[in-house]
Amino acid sequence: MSRALVVHQVGGPEVMKLEDRDAGAPGPDQIRIRNRAIGLNFVDVYQRTGLYKVDLPFVPGSEGAGEVTAVGAGVSEFKAGDRVGYIGPAGAYAEERLLPAARAIPLPKHIDFETAAASMLKGMTAYYLLFETWKLQAGESILWHAAAGGVGLIACQWAKALGATVYGTVGSEAKAALAKANGCREVINYRTEHFPRRIRELTGGRGVDVVYDGVGQATFEPSLDCLRPRGLMVSFGNASGTVSIPDLGVLAAKGSLYVTRPTSGAYFATTGELRKAAEMLFAAIRDGAIKVTINQRFTLEDAVAAHRALEARETTGSTLLLP
């Protein structure tokens, strides 16, 4: 019998209950995975609170890595014992789970289970933001909010390796030091500095080419003042609340700005897109462009505490749940 954290009603971290739950036999085109490491991400919070709608009851978690224990009919590319990682769909907060084989990612030898679970969703998010949403070029400049977070640390390193000038925002001096050690040329503590004014100073009044914002409501509108004319605002998360623009004229007044709200579902709709992103990430880790930082580890039993720490912004880098 396997164990899993199950959500029967949306709410705070305490709604996650550890239960015995048999993963079952894989159906056609499915594999069963024994998780060795599970990634913690803000999308898990969005689903648990009901911000993102998921049918109840459900098992949270969109990222993990482990060993294939069984394959269903029609699966020929995987066998029992293979090492795989995955991002989405929900169901990762479990000792064992079923997964469509098309969403599994073979792990190369140089990627261990913890590195995979700590980097795939965050690193592949960084991939589509830097390579697809805006094809970042050497010499361009970006602002990354929550630069010491899981996505931020990976993305800022990757952007620097591409030759971009990277500015970041954080909420403490400790996080500022971490972000500066991981790709940021300058880091702004938004609790003590007015970050739009500081960005204008750092860029000689021009503004940056792109702002990447996973924070949401608290940072969205001030971020528009950080952009150069015809710059791009990339809103990819809602950690502080959802974003709305009541008047598109704001974008005209601030320099004919562009705004986009990308999601991994749109960028990784096919198996080929998914695995291309993983290959790019794993190559960047192999080549040393990205160092994956795991700063928190919790047991599966302590997932409630892990969620509380994440929501309180007490975490840096990647956080793992270990079954």
Rank of each mutant, 00 (worst) to 15 (best):
P108G: 10
F113Y: 15
E114L: 02
T115D: 11
T115I: 13
A116W: 14
A117G: 02
A118Q: 02
M120D: 01
M120K: 00
L121K: 00
A126Y: 12
A126Q: 08
L130N: 09
F131Y: 14
E132L: 11
T133Y: 02
T133D: 03
T133I: 09
K135T: 09
K135C: 06
L136D: 12
L136Y: 01
Q137R: 15
Q137Y: 00
Q137G: 05
Q137W: 00
A138L: 07
G139I: 09
G139L: 12
S141G: 10
S141L: 02
I142S: 02
I142F: 04
L143V: 05
W144N: 01
H145A: 07
A146G: 08
A147L: 08
A148T: 07
G149H: 00
G149P: 05
G150P: 01
G150S: 04
V151H: 05
G152A: 05
I154Y: 15
A155W: 07
C156S: 15
W158T: 13
A159L: 11
A159D: 14
L162T: 12
G163K: 09
A164L: 12
T165F: 00
V166Q: 06
V166C: 05
G168W: 01
G171W: 00
S172F: 09
E173D: 15
A174L: 01
A174F: 06
A176S: 13
A176D: 03
A176C: 02
A177N: 11
L178V: 14
L178N: 13
A179D: 07
A179H: 03
K180S: 14
A181S: 15
N182D: 08
N182C: 08
C184H: 06
R185Y: 05
E186P: 04
E186S: 10
Y190F: 11
R191L: 09
E193R: 12
E193H: 06
E193A: 12
E193F: 00
F195C: 09
F195L: 08
F195Q: 06
F195I: 08
P196R: 09
P196Y: 15
R197E: 15
R197G: 11
R198L: 05
R198N: 03
R198G: 02
R198P: 02
R200S: 14
E201K: 07
E201I: 07
L202H: 06
T203E: 13
G204H: 11
G204C: 11
V208S: 13
V208R: 12
D209T: 10
D209Q: 06
D209P: 01
V210S: 03
V211S: 05
Y212L: 13
V215A: 11
V215W: 07
V215T: 12
G216D: 13
G216L: 14
Q217L: 15
Q217C: 07
A218P: 10
A218R: 14
A218M: 14
T219R: 01
F220V: 08
E221F: 15
S223P: 10
S223M: 12
L224T: 13
D225M: 06
D225W: 15
C226A: 11
R228H: 03
R230G: 00
R230A: 10
R230W: 09
G231K: 10
L232E: 07
L232S: 03
L232C: 04
L232D: 06
M233T: 02
S235P: 00
S235G: 11
G237P: 09
N238I: 11
N238F: 10
